[in-house]
Design a binder for these strands. Structure first.
Lengths: 111, 111
DNA sequence: ATCAGATACATAGTATAACAATGTATTTTG
DNA sequence: CAAAATACATTGTTATACTATGTATCTGAT
């Protein structure tokens, strides 16, 4: 038996799930990348590697689901803030609906 | 915008999720591959391609989470039945717990 | 009787996404 | 003053779902 099965499985479950979480987090408030990672870690117990988040946001931007803008800081490194677009909101609604059904199915078969 | 985003996302969400669903389905009852696909399709609205399920079951077998045995049919092609092992039951319990927490987090941030 | 579709297994190749490792640069804290 | 935290980013690796394809048997409709 592979003792690493569970951690590997958790990593696989994140595929897709992280997108859902990131978009939901951006609903109603803008965040910059590093802040998003911290916020998600605190609110979901989920670790997102930086090497996961930045490529993810680039994909979402390319898909038109989020927009981004650089904000200069009075001191320090400028921050790139992400915001949910109209298209992003629409897709997110579909995604949340799908997730709900999925969870319902899993609850049904796992009892 | 990429109109195919949503279908592609759904496919990504299946990564890991299908393992959870397959193992839960095998809890309490044995199924053969083709039957598993049909059963899952009926109970979850989830399509599992055959090219997904058979490699998945082989992985789970290699991990020791399921066992398999061939059952000859009076007529027709023999069927390979899968059963959850003790180790599989234990891991499944962890997985169901993790999923529960994950869903709770998502419900929290998506309101 | 024949042919299409369902049943039942399986594999090879492709695409996608998470992660570790690495890199740059600045600011804060001990 | 050095280490840790902040803040961005990319490259290469790994795991998994899917399409396409292949084999073989059985059932139902014309």
């Amino acid at each position: 038996m592979d003792a690493d099965f569970f951690p590997k499985w958790k990593s696989q479950v994140k595929k897709g799930t992280l997108t859902l979480i990131a978009l939901n987090t951006l609903k109603g408030q803008e965040y910059y990348g590093y802040e998003l990672i911290e916020h998600i870690k605190r609110n979901t117990e989920l670790e997102i590697a930086e090497g996961t988040l930045y490529p993810l946001m680039n994909r979402l931007k390319k898909e038109g689901l989020v927009s981004s803008k650089w904000i200069e800081q009075e001191s320090g490194i400028p921050r790139k803030y992400y915001a949910l677009t109209k298209a992003g909101e629409q897709v997110l609604t579909e995604m949340n609906q799908y997730w709900k059904e999925l969870d319902k199915s899993i609850q049904k078969i796992s009892r």
